[in-house]
Simulated assay, not measured.
Amino acid sequence: MVKQLMRPSYTRSIIRWARSFSTIPCRGFLAYPARARDATELSSTPAGTRLRGCNILKNGQDPEALPDNEYPDWLWELLDEEAQKRKLDADPEKKARKEWRKKNRERIKQANFLKSMR
Rank of each mutant, 00 (worst) to 15 (best):
S44A: 14
Q4H: 09
E82W: 09
I24E: 10
A47V: 11
N55Q: 12
D38Y: 00
T23C: 08
E70C: 09
S13D: 10
R12H: 13
P8A: 05
R16L: 11
R107Q: 11
K98E: 09
R118W: 04
E41M: 06
A47P: 13
W17I: 04
K102M: 12
M117P: 00
E77A: 04
L30S: 04
R50V: 13
P46Y: 01
A47Q: 07
W76A: 14
K115L: 13
A111D: 09
R7G: 06
E41S: 08
I24S: 10
W76T: 04
S43M: 01
Q61C: 08
Y10V: 15
P8G: 03
R97S: 14
S43G: 10
E99F: 05
V2T: 13
S116Q: 14
L88N: 05
T11R: 15
I15N: 03
E99C: 04
M6F: 08
I24H: 13
S22A: 09
P46A: 06
R52F: 12
R27S: 03
N104T: 11
N112R: 15
R12E: 15
P8V: 07
F113D: 13
L79Y: 01
G48L: 12
L75H: 08
E106D: 14
P8Q: 09
P72G: 04
E93K: 10
E41K: 14
N55G: 10
I24Q: 11
C26M: 13
P25T: 07
K58T: 12
A31E: 03
S116C: 07
C26W: 11
A39L: 02
P92W: 02
S20V: 06
T49D: 00
E81P: 05
W76C: 03
E82M: 07
R50G: 05
R12G: 04
Q84S: 05
I15H: 05
L78A: 06
N104M: 09
R50A: 10
